[in-house]
Amino acid sequence: MKKLAGIVVFTVGLILLYGVSSLDDFPSWGTPDSPANKSPLSQYFIKNTIVDTEVPNMVTAVLADYRGYDTMFETVVIFVAGLGIFAVVRVFEHGGASRVVTADTKPDIIITNTCRLLIPLIQLFALYVLAHGHSSPGGGFQGGVIMGASFILVALAWDLDIALKRFSEKQAFICSGIGILIYAGFGLASVFLGEEFLNYGIIHKILPGVDSPEMARYYAMLGVEIGVMFTVTSIMFLIYGLLATRGKMTAGL
């Protein structure tokens, strides 16, 4: 079996190596003339994101506006993955024994005090990454993962029970649903104002202090990213909690 696998992998690898090095279909490293770089689509994005949306970060603009559907259903994929993990591993034990605190299981004083200092900064940084996704690398997914990591850090340093007191399983699932609702809400708002789903430009009619469709897109993208952050934060925390406790959601590692 291993021999067969080796032959298969070796053959496929040889064919691919031949393909990438002797055919001229693959552009050489870093050339601006490659088909992907010369395609009208990417050239349009580079030239027009600032005109259409006033967002300097093209990646954010393409992610949250031009490819809004993709990002929305990506958020749904994360939500469904969280539900799937819950459905697969979650077990409910009635009268489950809470963890016995001994000298070995007591949280370490150095670790807990360091985390006390670090976690607020991590959460602040997550909000910064979210809010500056428009003008620097960042956005809802990145900020959400950092925020989720701060909750996971609580669970690692103390105990999953302590973390669940701050952000319970139920709250996490509700938050992940709220995130998708925020995203879809922006889409529906533009439908009700007379544009296509997720065509945010029209929202300037109801946003106070925003007079142009471009700025409306700017702020709608921020709102959408906040929705993404809700979902990603809570699902990352849930994935950790469910996998680390084999679905018991108590005690933790």
């Binding site: 689509l41 050239q43 580079i46 990646v59 992610l63 994360i78 469904v80 993955a81």
Partner: peptide
Amino acid sequence: PDGYANPLPHVLMLTAIVVGVATLGLALA
């Protein structure tokens, strides 16, 4: 257009990374 890296593959891979995390989590479960 020649002055900036192509944003489209970055966006596609942002999507792929996040979905990759979700599927890996489900696979581990």
